[in-house]
């Protein structure tokens, strides 16, 4: 039962409610940021470097794959074949997606842009390569420090016909990797 006299108060009340809800939702923003950097994140894959595993239609359509990236302890338990997300060694503000080909201690037979025929992967580093031909990977900038890795791709979310868990352990091993004895 709003009396006439209160009609003039609706505008400030609306503003007050609006800012109240704005504040209440803004307090969730740090939670979202922490979740995205430590638990999981959903991200679009751009570019053809992981063709044909991700973005198989990169030259036919603009459709991009949507993937789930697990951010939980990204430096630990890395295995050959995993698809990882890391900051590009060339530009820290760019994040790239590649497959781990070799772990520390392995000797890799490199591909063309690399100046030497064989490369031993240093301690604390991994050798990453894209699945496709159009890829700028360890053959270009050398082994990548595991400190740069921010997550690993665990699931494909869209398109729905390929959606599901990334079965990285079923991926064929790359030829020319001489595994280290310890691992």
């Amino acid at each position: 039962m709003a009396p006439w006299g209160s009609a003039g108060k609706t505008t400030p009340r609306f503003l007050g409610q609006f800012s109240h809800y704005l504040f209440r939702y803004a307090t969730w923003l740090p939670v979202l940021i922490a979740f995205n950097s430590y638990v999981a994140q959903v991200t679009w894959i751009r570019g053809p470097s992981m063709y044909p595993f991700l973005n198989p239609q990169y030259n036919e359509s603009l459709r991009k794959d949507l993937c789930l990236v697990s951010k939980w302890s990204p430096h630990r338990n890395l295995e050959r074949g995993m698809i990882v997300v890391f900051r590009s060694p060339e530009n820290p503000h760019v994040t790239v997606v590649k497959r781990i080909v070799a772990l520390e201690g392995d000797v890799v037979r490199t591909k063309p842009p690399y100046p030497y025929e064989h490369a031993k992967v240093d301690v604390g580093h991994v050798w990453v390569e894209g699945d496709g031909d159009k890829t700028k990977d360890s053959n270009y900038y050398g082994p990548v420090s595991t400190g740069l890795i921010t997550g690993r791709i665990t699931h494909i979310l869209t398109p729905l016909d390929r959606a599901g868990r990334v079965r990285w352990w079923e991926h064929a091993e790359r030829e020319g990797v001489q595994k280290a004895q310890a691992s």
Binding site: P89, Y114, P115, Y116, D122, H125, Y140, Y141, G142, P143, V144, S145
Partner: peptide, 8 residues
Amino acid sequence: MPPPCPSF
């Protein structure tokens, strides 16, 4: 030694 860079 990442990355490979020529020395002189």
